[in-house]
């Protein structure tokens, strides 16, 4: 598959009354056509800001992209004018958000909102747009499509609004769909419906997807590649089976082992916990920002930022940012424990 997007050295900051917020710190990666990338990490780790930076949706001020390039179809999106970017958004790259009410206009009918986009981006006339809108609403599993187009957003349930958002996002056949926690506010049964729907549509439309979530289970079920963020950086990324099966960054390992699993029996073993709290984004990051919580840290972690590079002995494209060798460190730890026994 060809390269669809290349993000290079993206840095985004916010100037607030409390000082500078170091939201995204030197993020680089490549996304391929048709690929599904799952982005995980804790609250405040820069997942949304990184996506909004790509989409040209960072409020400026207080925000500022101080460095970076985003290459998409031969153009650097960060260099486009506001008007040019507006045309890219919706037509080539679409985005759906956690709260559908932030992107649905409460005073316009759902039909009007979808047809506007079709007329703007695809130059359809009224009749064509109406037909296509009904098709889209039907496609996302809302019965009685034609009638429902006349309804306002508040006349739908949360899960239905989320499906309408998806219909709107897909209306112009984008090459890339960025979904920012689109199912977090929904119940698991509705989440499962929506994920099935999106997977199926993705196959039909052959688009790439960036799926932002804090739910590692969701990523495990739908992504090709996982990207773990911490403190505004990518700390690990790679094919999902490789990263889940053989994590090389201590934060990824901590996340995976602290989660109880549905398919494991009830036992009152203590959960493995990650000590401490997430980093304060108001402090300029020095070194590896996970160091204070990392039992495997080395001296170097305090002072130098580890670059993201190919993980030794793992599959191609499994990248990790760490000064320590997690495999080695865990092996030693195990030997010590056995030695004690």
């Amino acid at each position: 598959m060809g390269v669809l997007m290349e993000v290079k050295n993206l840095v985004t900051r916010f100037q607030t009354q409390e000082g500078t917020i170091y939201a995204v710190n030197d993020v680089s990666y490549t996304l391929h056509e048709g690929e599904t990338l799952g982005v995980v990490g804790e609250s405040g780790s820069g997942k949304s800001v990184h996506a909004l930076s790509i989409m040209g949706l960072i409020p400026m001020p207080p925000g500022k992209i101080t460095n970076g390039e985003v290459w998409f179809q031969g153009r650097d999106l960060l260099k486009l004018s506001r008007e040019e970017m507006r045309l890219v958004r919706g037509a080539e790259i679409a985005m759906i958000f956690q709260d559908p009410m932030t992107s649905l206009n409460p005073v316009l009918t759902v039909g009007t909102q979808i047809t506007e986009a079709l007329k703007l981006h695809l130059g359809m006339n009224n009749a064509q747009a109406d037909n296509r809108a009904a098709e889209l609403i039907d496609m996302v599993g809302i019965p009685d499509a034609r009638k429902r187009l006349k309804n306002y957003p508040h006349q739908f349930s949360g899960g239905m609004r989320q499906r309408i958002m998806i219909a709107m996002a897909l209306s112009c056949n984008p090459k890339l769909l960025i979904a920012d926690e689109p199912t977090t506010a929904l119940d698991v049964t509705i989440q499962a419906q929506i994920i099935e729907l999106v997977k199926q549509l993705q196959k039909e439309l052959k688009m790439a997807m960036i799926w932002i979530t804090h739910d590692l289970g969701v990523v495990a079920g739908m992504a090709d590649t996982i990207q773990v963020m911490y403190g505004g950086r990518i700390v690990e990324r790679g094919p999902i089976k490789s990263v889940f099966g053989d994590p090389r960054n201590a934060y990824t390992l901590g996340l995976l082992t602290s989660l109880p699993r549905l398919d494991e029996g009830h036992n009152r073993q203590r959960l493995t916990q990650i000590e401490g709290s997430p980093p304060d984004m108001r402090v300029e990051p020095v070194g590896d920002s996970f160091a204070p919580r990392n039992p495997y840290r080395t001296e170097r972690c305090w002072t130098e930022t580890p670059p993201l590079r190919q993980a030794e002995g793992s599959v191609d494209g499994h990248m990790v940012a760490a000064w320590y060798d997690l495999r080695q460190a865990r092996k030693q730890q195990q030997q010590q424990m056995e030695g004690k026994r």
């Binding site: 599993g141 349930s157 949360g158 899960g159 239905m160 119940d187 698991v188 049964t189 509705i190 989440q191 499962a192 419906q193 099935e196 739910d215 590692l216 289970g217 969701v218 990523v219 495990a220 079920g221 999902i240 089976k241 889940f244 099966g245 995976l256 989660l259 699993r261 549905l262 398919d263």
Partner: peptide, 23 residues
């Protein structure tokens, strides 16, 4: 059956009982 499991191997072979409609 709707709860995602953080393990790509398990997810790959899972059969979901999808229920339609909202609460």
């Amino acid at each position: 059956s709707a709860v995602p499991v953080p393990d790509p191997m398990v997810e790959e072979n899972r059969q979901r009982i999808l229920i339609t409609g909202d609460l």
